[in-house]
């Protein structure tokens, strides 16, 4: 029992529902994991973008459709969509105090982030199979 700490809640009680957010440190941890992922992918993605500059459509499709490029871009898109969903959620929770508006904003954020991710992944997959 945690009587010594002077709080009314037991150790089990504190852990059971994992804090005010109900999800413990999951949000914090996922933000860091995606941040490191994006950091690692930053240079390869930058190289890909520079490779694309000034290219016509055929050359662009050929570069983006290459297996390694497509895989790197897909990883970047997934990490980015996830990271930005988490980040925008923090901004919403900090500034939107009306509960209904907050719920609507959090849903909109979730949908927008997923839509950007899915649209980008669809395009990458289409490019790998030839336009």
């Amino acid at each position: 029992m945690s009587k010594a700490s002077g709080h009314m809640r037991t150790d089990l009680g504190k852990v059971r529902f994992r804090g005010a957010a109900g999800s413990g440190t999951a949000h914090f941890w996922q933000q860091r994991v995606t941040a490191v992922g994006i950091g690692l992918l930053a240079i390869p993605v930058l190289v890909i973008i520079v490779m694309l500059l000034g290219r016509n459509h055929a050359a662009t499709v050929q570069i983006l459709g290459a297996p390694l490029v497509a895989i790197l871009m897909a990883l970047f898109v997934i990490a980015s969509a996830w990271h930005m969903k988490l980040g925008m959620q923090v901004i919403i929770e900090d500034y939107v105090h009306n509960e209904k508006l907050k719920l609507a904003a959090i849903l909109a954020n979730q949908f927008f982030s997923f839509a950007v991710g899915v649209v980008s992944l669809y395009a990458i997959l289409k490019l790998t199979s030839g336009v």
Binding site: T60, M84, I91
Partner: peptide, 23 residues
């Protein structure tokens, strides 16, 4: 900048989709 990048991902999605759509 995080919020700006959030909005800017539309450009990334548009660019990829445009390349996939055709000339």
């Amino acid at each position: 900048t995080g919020a700006a990048l959030y909005a800017g991902t539309i450009l990334m999605a548009w660019g990829l989709l445009a390349a996939a759509a055709g000339p």
